[in-house]
Simulated scan of single mutants.
Amino acid sequence: MAALRSILFALVFYSFTVAAVLAAVPAALIGPGALHPLVRFWGRFHRWAAAAILGIRTRVEGRLPDGAVLVAAKHQSMYETLEMVVLLDRPAVVLKRELTDIPLWGWAARRYGMIPVDRAGGAAALRRMMKAAERAIAEGRPIVIFPEGTRVPPGAAPPLQPGFAGLYRALGLPVVAIALDSGRVWPRKGWKRAGTVTMRVSDPIPPGLPRREIEARVHAAINALEAGNDA
């Protein structure tokens, strides 16, 4: 049954995504404002399909942030990347530059205000990333980063990538950390399973902390649901 549901979800969601990307092209030509409701609708459709077909739902513990803030989240599956679009107000997500090379989707993502990061691009790439982040802040949008750098399996708690501390220092924003356990029901390999994804939101962490302290606090907060840490 899990296999059948996973296959049906892929057919339904990705068919809708193709239509959404095609609709995003004229919207992107108009401007980011025209893209925001379309992207949110895409995220809501993903939420509906996950719940109706896969039996996967979200439970949020804590208060989600408003306005310009740096959101540092655990990353275990694709699920949370789209759930953030629904939970937050017009989030600007820091993502791998390679994703913005996807035809049509990548161009629309840039127009929407996603923030591509090129880890091998040097100083010029860093400046482009900072400019995109500053535009998001000026618009009062939250910036979402997955500070571990990639998806990790449940139970894994790797150190944060150094880019997180640099972004925290440069932007001067408070940080809200989000722990989650989506990997239990949405594994990187294998069929998806019904269940509830818990997202535990931390209290805001102030800007201006030393690197060791901010990394330690965020690392602890995003791993609050890992085995042995769930309190």
Rank of each mutant, 00 (worst) to 15 (best):
G149P: 07
P147Q: 11
P147V: 12
T150L: 01
G208H: 05
I178G: 11
A170Y: 08
I178Q: 14
A132D: 06
A170H: 09
V197I: 12
P153M: 00
P207L: 12
S202C: 15
L167D: 04
I145V: 14
P158N: 02
L160Y: 02
R135S: 14
A179V: 05
A177G: 12
I145Q: 10
L180T: 06
G172P: 12
G155H: 02
G195D: 13
V197Q: 09
P210N: 08
G208A: 05
W186R: 01
R169F: 06
P207Y: 08
D203R: 15
V197F: 11
I145K: 09
L173W: 13
R184A: 07
R193W: 11
E139R: 08
E134H: 10
I137L: 12
M199W: 08
L180S: 05
V152P: 02
R141E: 12
K192G: 13
P187Y: 00
G166S: 14
R200Y: 07
R188P: 01
G163A: 05
Y168R: 01
V197G: 07
P207V: 09
P206Q: 10
K192N: 08
Y168L: 04
P204K: 05
P210K: 07
G195Y: 10
I137E: 15
P159G: 04
F164M: 07
S182G: 05
G149F: 00
G140S: 12
G140T: 11
I145E: 07
V185D: 05
Y168T: 01
Y168I: 02
T196F: 08
W191G: 00
R169P: 13
P147R: 12
I178Y: 09
V176D: 08
T150V: 05
